[in-house]
């Protein structure tokens, strides 16, 4: 904690009445759903079979891990998250470097570059599904035709690629924005000094700028991973997890089990798996944020 923020040397006990509403609300939110999901995950409970509701031990987990569909879902989640991370970091870094330069209308250009972030997921998905990627009337299909490239029915032949394109478009702005902010905090005199010493643009990028981006990149990776593991509306509005289970991620699997199959037990077991995955990533995020608190 930075010094000099204590008011009148009061004791911390005085803060509790002010803190308690937030602590109580978040306390309930962090315990009740988790406990209930854990409990349901050990039970046979299907809303379509309401009479029967009993303890089955780890059977739901057994079914979960012996079902090839759930392994596919985990693999799909990892492919989606990893691909979008790589794309958004590479494009985001390039964009941030470009937008960090001095040029006329920089503010407006920045706004354009981050605008996809503000588009709600179903709208983002539908723009791409219909207006751009549709094989018959879409803009991209027509443009590829101009270059003599074959028309690709994206959502039936390469559904995961299409999904990755859509989600990357949504998350490139996030990476750009954070990396741009980091670049702006870079001491420009340091770069100037390196330039005077004869370091070319590539050397400056390699030895000064990129090392400075280490921490923000870590933050982007962790924040995006948490959000990307929960991607849902984009899948629902484009492929509904298909064809087959080609785009069924862990999140989408829980949705199918819970709200389409009404299988509470099975959905809860998959939900627990999703929680565990998110928390592994989350741990790293919290450590890095905790470090920034101490700076």
């Amino acid at each position: 904690m930075a010094g000099g923020t204590k008011v009148g040397g009061r004791r911390e006990g005085r803060g509790w009445p002010l803190l308690s509403p937030a602590v109580i609300v978040l306390g309930i939110w962090s315990v009740v759903p988790l406990a209930m999901t854990l409990w349901y995950s050990t039970r046979y409970y299907n809303l379509l079979d309401p009479g029967r509701h009993f303890f089955v031990g780890l059977r739901n987990y057994d079914l979960l891990f012996s079902d090839p569909g759930s392994l596919t879902a985990i693999a799909n989640s990892i492919i989606l998250v990893a691909s979008v991370l790589v794309i958004s970091l590479i494009v985001g870094t390039a964009l941030a470097l470009l937008l960090n330069a001095e040029f006329p209308g920089r503010g407006a250009a920045r706004l354009f570059a981050i605008s996809p972030f503000f588009v709600m997921p179903p709208v983002a998905a539908l723009i791409w599904k219909n207006l751009l990627l549709n094989p018959l009337n879409g803009l991209l299909g027509w443009m590829m035709g101009l270059f003599g490239l074959p028309v690709i029915p994206w959502f039936s032949t390469a559904p995961m690629v299409a999904l990755i394109i859509i989600v990357s478009w949504e998350w490139i702005p996030f990476a750009t924005l954070i990396l741009l902010t980091a670049l702006q905090s870079l001491d420009s005199s340091q770069i100037e000094a390196a330039r005077m010493d004869g370091a070319g643009p590539l050397a400056r990028l390699r030895y000064i700028i990129l090392p400075h981006l280490g921490r923000p990149v870590a933050i982007v990776v962790m924040m995006e991973t948490i959000f990307l593991l929960s991607i849902f509306a984009e899948i629902l509005t484009t492929t509904s997890g298909g064809p087959g289970d080609a785009t069924t991620t862990l999140t989408f699997l829980v949705y199918i089990r819970a709200l389409l199959d009404f299988n509470v037990g099975g959905a809860s077991a998959a939900g627990v798996l999703a929680i565990v995955l998110a928390n592994i990533v989350g741990l790293f995020l919290m450590r890095s944020v905790a470090r920034s608190l101490n700076r």
């Binding site: 929960s230 829980v254 959905a267 995955l277 928390n279 989350g282 101490n294």
Partner: peptide
Amino acid sequence: GRHTQGLLIWMLSTKMLPPVGALVP
């Protein structure tokens, strides 16, 4: 106070619950 930093981190940690993990309850 002594607990402020821990409290802040704990509040952040509640974001680690993916919505889908809370869907059923």
